[in-house]
Design a protein around this nucleic acid. Sequence first.
DNA 1: CGGCAATTTGAACATTTTCAATACGGGTGG
DNA 2: CCACCCGTATTGAAAATGTTCAAATTGCCG
Lengths: 223, 223
Amino acid sequence: MSIAASIGITSCATCPVGRASGVGRGGHCPLVDRTRPAGEWIYVEGEPAGTIWFVKRGTLVLSRALRDDASRESPLGVRGEGAFLGLEALVRPTYTDTARALTEVKLCGASRDVFDAWLGPPGTPARTALEQTLEHACAEPPRAAGPDGTALRRVARWLLELRQDRAPAIPRRVTSNLLGMVPETLSRALARLAAVGAIDVSRRSLRIRDRGLLASLAGERTG
Amino acid sequence: MSIAASIGITSCATCPVGRASGVGRGGHCPLVDRTRPAGEWIYVEGEPAGTIWFVKRGTLVLSRALRDDASRESPLGVRGEGAFLGLEALVRPTYTDTARALTEVKLCGASRDVFDAWLGPPGTPARTALEQTLEHACAEPPRAAGPDGTALRRVARWLLELRQDRAPAIPRRVTSNLLGMVPETLSRALARLAAVGAIDVSRRSLRIRDRGLLASLAGERTG
DNA sequence: CGGCAATTTGAACATTTTCAATACGGGTGG
DNA sequence: CCACCCGTATTGAAAATGTTCAAATTGCCG
């Protein structure tokens, strides 16, 4: 519960990983900093999972190749500050998805072996829980959620949940896929929301104008 | 990687949790067995997260209330042997979803405090990784996967991925929601697959007849 | 053997996707 | 500093797909 949140991870002393390593109490964090520019691929689905990363700053998209057409990929999540990336390396030989930087990112990384050593001896309760969790998370293919309302409704809801910090950089294609629709549909939904005055939208900015209206369109326990 | 799989968890000595507790080496596992009949609710979304469970046998559905209509709920996953349930208790005050037994299940459970103690001292690397992972997993609302093919295609793919063991008990309503469609659509898709001879389907049995045909319908890198 | 609930089927309807054309906005090079 | 170009986003109209609602069927259970 007291996990690092939106304060910003500025140093190893304010980083959960750093603290767990005992930085400041004579400990040393084995993960090393790297900064990567926006647009860069951190790792690619299917390649040997050699490195595990921790996000200190910035935002990334996780995506997986469409099975229909391996040349296209469908975004399946966004990760930001405080997330681990590539943890599947602990239970899988290869990465299960592709991670790409959406903004400039600051990552701390370590090889699988180093990370493994950092976690402590195998077979401890905490490691077991972690590994079982990862095992099951990786095994489960990404599933479509049930049809939970129309496109307009899903978009309205998404806007309400929006973390201020994550919003700006996410391209339409990513967002639309996350919401289970094609970019055109997202465009239309945003246009409609703008038309009724719920939001202000331009090609690259987005602002909620009337949160109450948005909520009612989202179908939140009606008002 | 050597995590308990389909062999069956028959005793604490073959259970990951038991082994991590040192059962057989003088240790004692703090989780206690419970058997619950099919159909029973294990916990409900929103209620205080007091107990964490480990699945030793059987299958459960996890679901979350639809935001449109809190009276209905949409299944968002199936958990079986070897999965932890209600782990969100470590980072959240309340359960984030509802767990219901699909078959008779054998669970081992412990209160949050007991489980917490079992995990060992807070702030260790393994615990940190576990907690960060859970934190992010809980925070992320279940997202629809991108429109990854038509209903027929998704159903065909699902059939191919099907774990033999999980198949039998899952009702249509659950399956259909997992696949992002209404039960009627699933019915029709199954009927069509049966019509072309890819599967044999009856109201409560399901058998793959022609795996190759199914794969081609699923759009697996074309043949 | 009846009643019930889940599933299947049918047909009309609504929505979303598709395909194609257009408008932007940012970056580049003159 | 401005014109040009390219990729992303938007818009339009038609087509396909999935949903809805209602009715019929089936299997299960008392």
